[in-house]
């Protein structure tokens, strides 16, 4: 069992899962968010290739453009 945290909410994965698959499983469109993985922003081109590890901390957020 792989335990990860998405925006401070614990979630368990039954098998190694990519960042992209984790986001899609949340019903979130891939082109609507950025991902911080363990305090590092991960460019979208790497979301398919990075597999979540036990105790990974993910933060998902969308762009804010106002000013």
């Amino acid at each position: 069992m792989i335990l990860i945290h998405i925006n401070n909410v614990a979630q368990s994965l039954t098998e190694p899962t990519s960042l992209a698959a984790v986001i899609l499983a949340q019903d979130i469109a891939l082109d609507s968010v950025a991902i911080v993985l363990n305090a590092e922003l991960i460019p979208r081109n790497r979301w398919q290739s990075i597999l979540c590890q036990h105790e990974d901390k993910l933060e998902l957020f969308s762009a804010v453009a106002g000013g």
């Binding site: 950025a34 922003l41 762009a63 453009a65 106002g66 000013g67």
Partner: peptide
């Protein structure tokens, strides 16, 4: 690199 140009954005003042 953070938000590519085709990103969907809904947050504005």
């Amino acid at each position: 690199c953070i938000f590519p140009a085709h990103t969907r954005v809904s947050h504005s003042c």
